[in-house]
């Protein structure tokens, strides 16, 4: 399994934000994207997740020797970022159940409870998301991202809004993901960098 990016560039209103970004991350490795605020880390992550179109460049994801087409990327990755929200009018369980149905995940109930317990939300599964604190919502986003067991986990500011316990949960998730699969995260927090096998400095 390998995720490669070649020559990604992006401009907004003639201002070049990303210029010729290339890297390759094999399974069992992780990559950190660093850079000052506004440097283009989030833009790059959004491009990698197909939420934004790059002006140039291409992405290739290979699994078991087969190249996965970009249109099918979304079946292989998850993203956690401050700009992605879950449905406030639904409970945590219902949010995860919605994802499980869309992704055809089997044994839904058990997996949902397991992942809710893992992210430290035990006992709050049937509470509406609108009653959650920002830290709890962040934990739920991790549960949402991990439920589909992604090959690539993209994280934008992985530990923002989290207390000490929450940060520990996220570090365990990062450790586990990079041991088996691919982890790519954008951060300004130096303590997150201990999980990075490689670092790319994104500077607009």
């Amino acid at each position: 399994m390998k995720f490669s990016v070649q020559g990604i560039s992006k401009s907004f209103n003639f201002r070049e934000v990303l210029k010729d970004i290339s890297f390759s991350v094999p399974a069992g490795k992780s990559l950190a994207l660093t850079g000052h605020n506004g440097s283009g880390k989030t833009t790059l992550l959004r491009i990698l997740c197909n939420l934004l179109r790059a002006d140039a460049g291409k992405m290739v994801f290979e699994k078991h020797g087969n190249e996965i087409k970009p249109v099918h990327f979304k079946n292989h990755f998850s993203l956690v970022g401050p700009y992605l929200q879950l449905y406030d009018e639904l409970t945590a369980f219902e949010n995860l159940e919605f994802l499980a149905r869309l992704k055809n995940i089997e044994d839904t109930d058990n997996k949902i409870y397991e992942i809710i317990n893992m992210t430290g939300l035990k006992g709050r599964a049937h509470d509406f998301v609108k009653t959650y604190s920002s830290g709890m919502k962040q934990r739920l986003k991790y549960a949402f991202a991990l439920l589909s067991e992604p090959d690539i986990l993209f994280l934008d500011e992985p530990t923002s809004n989290l207390d000490k316990q929450g940060i520990e949960v996220v570090y365990n998730i990062m450790e586990e993901q990079k041991a088996k699969k691919i982890l790519i995260f954008a951060t300004n927090d130096e303590s997150d960098l201990k999980f990075a096998d490689g670092i790319i400095s994104v500077n607009a």
Binding site: C49, L51, S78, L79, L84, L86, Y87, L102, F144
Partner: peptide
């Protein structure tokens, strides 16, 4: 408005 459009884009 609830910023769930991107979430939906990623999963469906």
């Amino acid at each position: 408005e609830s910023r769930t459009a991107d979430t939906l884009k990623l999963i469906a």
